[in-house]
């Protein structure tokens, strides 16, 4: 199992970062897209979605998302 970092851009040029656990690269995309659909009232249309990093799934493993709007 890996902890994946996936970046996506919406049609409105909004950036989304999804951190997802998956057993494979391919499924990581699928899980990430599902997570995005669940997150928003109206699922955004994505212009691109990329897998940029993966780490072994272990306690404490994380990604720091810089420039996140809080």
């Amino acid at each position: 199992m890996f902890l994946y970092k996936i970046e996506a851009t919406t049609e409105e040029n909004k950036s989304i970062v999804v951190v997802v656990i998956s057993e494979s690269d391919e499924k990581a995309f699928s899980y990430a897209e599902t997570a995005i659909r669940r997150e928003f009232l109206v699922a955004p249309k994505l212009t691109d979605i990329s897998l940029v990093e993966k780490k072994y799934l272990e306690k404490g493993k994380a990604y720091v998302i810089e420039n996140a709007v809080v």
């Binding site: 970046e7 690269d25 391919e26 995309f29 691109d48 979605i49 990329s50 897998l51 940029v52």
Partner: peptide
């Protein structure tokens, strides 16, 4: 490197 999902599957980018 990054992996990008396209209509034709995953591609290296």
């Amino acid at each position: 490197g990054a992996l990008v999902k396209t209509e034709n599957g995953m591609i290296d980018a």
